[in-house]
Structures are given as structure tokens and as C-alpha cells.
Design a protein around this nucleic acid. Structure first.
Length: 642
DNA sequence: TTAGGGTTAG
């Protein structure tokens, strides 16, 4: 927009009067900037689809009679990257490189390189980096860093880094500290600490001073390396110290943590010594870690020394320290001393926490003093320390361990009400224990409560129930079918509880069914066997069950072809897939039955194959079936299947 | 983000 007053003759006269050379108001710098802003605003407002972004950019600026700005190009490219329009980026870059005259700001390329990296278009990122000078831009460490970030994202791309570094040197790019940081970080991340050290040396050879952050990272990575010896880390730190590195509290505590984790308590203790030599007073965290290390190793004498030392140094133990120490006492069966520590802690103003109580509860349970454990649990609640699943688990394991299964059941029910738990191995132990004692009904009752509370029993509980059900004389076969059918449907198949049946469970199930059905078949009670299979088909939502195939397999030799066919059809109706054994038995034995006429045979086999082809296509071994169909006379009843 | 880093057990 141009104001009307600017066009008035009087203005021209004013300019003519006061300036040596008249300047058109349209050609002033501010006017140009103003117009460019207007054009940019118009581009932003128009919000064209991605394919029209570039034409709109050109049109908007042409309308205002100005050249497009780098910002406008950046806006277009950002819009395209936000919507991942790879194809439309190319013409924009082409226009930017070949038509425009301005020096393109480097950040546009850094942004694009990062974008390509996020979409795993590494080659595009590299190509763009090399093409930067063509856009009248002098690349620096900024765009190089963007590319390095992309390449350091994967081990595969990391291999390309040396070449990129060489070429960027030719391009006149000087590596900055930030570039070295990216490289060291990536190398440490993949455990190539040796290379990271080389990079750091290279950095210093390039005239950069020692970087404290990089030193800290390398020492931490050295600690985390597998099979790393303490001398490596401490040796590295020593060398770096000569070069001016002053390891801080965090550097040392990282070293201590890793050493403790690796079971190197004495080495960790030596780090404390070194810290003190260097005038750094290790804090309570460092001491707690070392204390923990010795206790975990069972070196209680050293642990006591460490505890005394920290007190002498004037450090104040906190709840972490006390917990570690109390755990040490409990490991030495000094439960009384542990309990006394709780009183001492309170006197010293350090409140015991959930972990303190859990440690002591476990020790008390292990010593079989369940009543005392109950009292302590009550006490912790009174002291405002809430219990957690672990607390209950300790108690439950304690009760179970003591053989007090009745009490364990009561406790378990209490758990259902008080803590949110989706599964707990201790529950399975209790159910398993009940089954072992022949208390299958009790186990079932508990299991039903678990399911009602949305707690999923694990396979151990299911297996225990399934296995022991047969030995329970009070449970009739039909009851068994109903109960387990329901259970499996509810839990395993529905997947509501996230618990899926495993092959073992199915095996038990089918074995049970098979035993039951075989018994019935032996007795000649075929009708009853079929009733059970049909009941299973109704109650259990399963995809396949080998025992069904066993029934079909068992029906054929008895000449009960029609019955088998009928059952098979029901299975297919219920979407239960017969296994290969049933299919083969069906096809093969039908041919061998002398009482079956060829016509009957063909009449039966035909529909079977049709049935499977349509319903169970992928599981049907069509070739095998067709061989049988085509060569019924060559079938040898005493031989193996075709 | 004026802490970080450290404690039971599975």
C-alpha cells in the first residue's frame, strides 16, 4: 500500500527543494522492505496447497514488484517439511539456487538437513550439505553439525562421517567444539570409547582446550564398558588431569556407581581415597554407594568401617544410607539391631520409609516371626508409611513359606481389596500350593476372586489347576468341562486380562480331554464322548484342540464314519480347525474300511476336501488329500500315510 | 533443574 499523500505534487516539490538528486519514494530501501513484508504477509495469508507454494511465493513478490526474501523461502520450506512434501522441496531449492540472487542464510540448510535426517533420507541430507555453496552460502560448522547429528543417529551412517569430515575440511569448514561433542557423544553411545578419546585428542590438536564435559562423558563411558578395569578409568582421569581436567563430584560418583555395580567395592573405596587426596570431600551419596557395594559383597567388616568413616567425616546419613546399613544388618540376621536402627533414625530426625520397613519385614518373615511382621506392618501404617505391593508380597511369601496356607489365602484376599495389582507371582504360588494340597475347590474359589478383581493368574496357577483337577475325585468330568471351559473362555481366549494360553496349557487341556474321551470310547460310550466334545465346542472358544482330532481319529477305526463326519461338521461350524491327524485319519481310513463302498468313500472325501478348502484353506495339505483321492486303490492300510 | 547420583525386590 502506498499512501495517497506521498503522490501529491507538493511532496515532489518538497523533495526537489531539499535534495540534490530527487529519489523516487518507490525505490527507497524502506519501501522495498515494506513491500517485501507485504508480499510475505500475503503469501502467509493465502495458505496455498503444497504444490502451489512456490508459484504463490513468486507471484506475491512480483505483485509488489520486489524480489523474494530468504525468509519467504524459509517459510515455504518449513511449510513443506511440516507436511513432509519431499517432492515439492526440490523445485523450491532449484529456484533458490538458480534464480535468486541473495546470499541464502545457512540455517535454512541446517533445518532441511535435520528434516531429511528425521525421515532417514541420509543421502538427501549429505547431497544438500555438499550443494550449500551453490546457494551463495558459505557453509560452516552449523550445517556440518546438523549433518553430523543425522549421521550419528545410526551405526551405519556413522561410517560415512570420516569422509564427510575430510570433505568439509576441503570446503573450508572449521570444526567447532560442538562438532567434536556430537562425535564423542555418538561414539560413546555405541561403546567406541577408544575412538571417542581419539576424537578428543584430535580436538586438542586442533587448538582447542580440554573440554570438561567431554572428559566427564568419556570417563563415564569407560566405566560402563564391559570388562573395563578400574585402571582404565582412573588412568584416563589421571592423564586428563595432567592436561588440566579437574574431575568433579559427579565424575567420581559415576565411577563409584559403576564399580559398585560390577562388584568392585575395594576399587570404589579407592576412589573415595583419591577424592580425599584431591581435596574433594565425598558426599553422602558416594559413601552410601560404597557402603552398599560392601554389603552386597557380604564384606560387613569393611561396611562397618565405611559407615564409621562417613560419621567421622561429619557426613549425615540419610534414609538411603540407613536402608543400606539396615539391609546389611538383616543379611547378618541382626534383625533386632535393624529394628533398633528405626528408633535411632527417628531420634536423629530421619524418617524411615517404605523401603526401610520392607527390608525389616522381609527379615522378620524369613525368621518365621509372622506375628511380629504383622505388628510391624501395622506400625508402619500408623507411622504414616503406606504399604505397597512389595510389602504384601513379602508377607504373602512369608506366610506361604511357613506353610500357613489358610492365613495366606486370607491375606491374599485382603490384597485384592487394598492394592491395585494386575498380577503377582505369589498368588500363583498360593494357588499352586492349594492344588498341591488337594484343595482344588479352594483354589478355584480364590481364582474366581482374582478374576473378579481383574488380577490375571499366570500360567503356573492355570497349569496347577488343570493338572490337579483330574486327581480331585469330587469334581465330576462334566463339572470339569464346565469350569475349565469357562475359565479358558474368560481369561485365555478373551484376552481381557492379557493372559494368553501357552502350548503347555493346551497340551494339558487336550491330554485331559483325550484321557476322558479315550476312556469313554474304550467303554464303547461313543455318544457320551461326542456329548463332551460338543459341550467343549459350546463352552470353550478355542481355535483348535488336538483331542478333538483324537476323537475323530478314534471314531474312524470303529467304523463310525457318519458320526465322525457329523462331529467334524460341528467343529467347522464352531470355527474349530481340525488338525492334520483328523484330516488324514478321515481321508485314509475311509478308504481302508471294507464296509464302506467306493461310492460312499468318494461321496465322503469329496465334501471333506470341499469343506476344508473353503473353511480351513491354509492348514489343509491339499496335495496329500488329492493324492489320496486320486489313488484310493493304491492305499495300503498297514503302511504310513501317503 | 540450586539437584544430580545412591537404598528392598522382581
Amino acid at each position: 500500500m502506498v499512501r495517497a499523500s506521498a503522490l501529491k505534487p507538493s511532496s515532489k516539490f518538497f523533495l526537489r527543494k531539499h535534495r540534490k538528486w530527487p529519489v523516487s519514494p518507490y525505490n527507497t530501501r524502506w519501501q522495498q522492505i515494506f513491500n517485501q513484508n507485504q508480499a510475505f504477509q500475503s503469501l502467509k495469508k493465502s495458505l496455498p496447497p503444497p504444490c502451489h507454494l512456490l508459484p504463490t511465493l513468486i507471484y506475491s513478490f512480483k505483485t509488489y514488484n520486489v524480489d523474494p526474501t530468504p525468509e519467504a523461502y524459509h517459510f515455504v520450506l518449513k511449510t513443506l517439511t511440516k507436511t513432509s512434501q519431499f517432492d515439492h522441496i526440490v523445485p523450491v531449492l532449484c529456484q533458490l539456487g538458480k534464480v535468486e540472487k541473495f546470499d541464502t542464510p545457512e540455517h535454512i540448510f541446517s533445518h532441511l538437513i535435520g528434516f531429511y535426517g528425521r525421515w532417514s533420507r541420509t543421502q538427501d541430507a549429505i547431497d544438500l550439505f555438499y550443494r550449500i555453496p551453490k546457494f551463495r552460502c558459505v557453509p560452516s560448522a552449523h550445517s556440518l553439525n546438523a549433518l553430523l547429528y543425522v549421521l550419528c543417529g545410526s551405526c551405519e551412517c556413522l561410517k560415512l562421517v570420516p569422509e564427510i569430515l575430510l570433505r568439509s575440511h576441503v570446503m573450508g569448514i572449521r570444526l567447532e567444539e560442538s562438532s567434536f561433542w556430537i562425535l564423542v557423544n555418538a561414539l560413546c553411545g555405541i561403546g567406541k570409547v577408544g575412538y571417542a578419546i581419539e576424537i578428543m585428542n584430535c580436538m586438542m590438536n586442533n587448538g582447542y582446550g580440554l573440554n570438561v564435559k567431554i572428559c566427564g562423558l568419556i570417563s563415564l563411558s569407560l566405566c560402563e564398558q564391559k570388562d573395563s578395569e578400574c585402571v582404565d578409568v582412573m588412568g584416563f582421569m589421571g592423564e586428563m588431569q595432567i592436561l588440566g581436567f579437574c574431575p568433579g563430584m559427579m565424575d567420581y560418583s559415576n565411577v563409584i556407581r559403576v564399580m559398585v555395580k560390577q562388584g568392585r567395592g575395594l576399587d570404589a573405596l579407592n576412589v573415595l581415597v583419591k577424592m580425599k587426596e584431591e581435596g574433594i570431600k565425598p558426599d553422602i551419596v558416594c559413601y552410601t554407594m560404597v557402603l552398599h557395594g560392601f554389603i552386597a559383597e557380604g564384606d560387613f567388616k569393611k561396611a562397618d568401617q565405611v559407615f564409621d568413616e562417613l560419621l567421622v567425616l561429619g557426613l549425615v546419613p540419610d534414609v538411603y544410607t540407613y536402608n543400606v546399613y539396615i539391609n546389611g544388618l538383616c543379611k547378618q540376621n541382626k534383625v533386632e539391631s535393624g529394628l533398633m536402627m528405626i528408633t535411632s533414625m527417628e531420634e536423629l530426625g530421619c524418617k524411615p520409609n517404605l523401603i526401610t520397613y520392607n527390608i525389616l519385614l522381609k527379615a522378620i518373615c524369613n525368621s518365621g516371626e509372622l506375628r511380629r511382621a504383622r505388628n510391624l506392618m501395622r506400625e508402619m501404617t500408623l507411622n504414616g508409611v503406606g504399604v505397597n505391593l512389595q510389602t504384601y508380597r513379602i508377607m504373602l511369601d512369608g506366610l506361604f513359606g511357613k506353610g500357613d496356607i489358610e492365613e495366606a489365602c486370607v491375606f491374599m484376599e485382603e490384597m485384592f481389596d487394598k492394592v491395585i495389582v494386575h498380577f503377582c507371582s505369589s498368588f500363583d504360588e498360593v494357588i499352586y500350593g492349594l492344588c498341591q494340597r488337594g484343595l482344588v475347590c479352594k483354589a478355584m474359589e480364590l481364582l474366581k476372586k482374582m478374576v473378579a478383581k481383574n488380577v490375571a493368574p499366570r500360567s503356573k496357577a492355570w497349569e496347577a489347576l488343570l493338572l490337579s483337577s483330574g486327581s480331585e475325585p469330587s469334581l465330576e468330568e462334566t463339572t470339569w468341562t464346565e469350569q475349565y471351559g469357562g475359565m479358558i473362555k474368560h481369561d485365555f481366549v478373551s484376552g481381557e486380562l492379557g493372559c494368553k494360553p501357552n502350548s503347555f496349557t493346551y497340551n494339558i487341556l487336550s491330554k485331559r480331554v483325550r484321557v476322558m474321551l479315550d476312556g469313554l470310547l474304550c467303554k464303547g460310550d461313543v455318544d457320551e464322548a461326542c456329548v463332551i466334545v460338543e459341550a467343549m465346542l459350546d463352552k470353550v472358544l478355542i481355535r483348535f484342540c488336538s483331542s478333538f482330532s483324537e476323537v475323530i481319529y478314534g471314531l474312524w477305526p470303529r467304523g463310525l464314519v457318519c458320526k465322525a463326519m457329523e462331529l467334524l461338521k460341528k467343529m467347522v461350524d464352531k470355527n474349530v480347525a481340525p488338525r492334520e491327524k483328523a484330516r488324514e485319519a478321515l481321508l485314509l481310513s475311509s478308504g481302508s474300511k471294507p464296509d464302506l463302498k467306493e461310492t460312499t468313500w468318494t461321496g465322503l472325501v469329496g465334501p471333506i476336501i470341499a469343506l476344508y478348502s473353503t473353511n480351513r484353506g491354509p492348514t489343509l495339505d491339499t496335495n496329500k488329500c488329492l493324492t489320496v483321492v486320486n489313488c484310493p486303490r493304491s492305499f495300503n492300510p498297514s503302511g504310513s500315510t501317503v
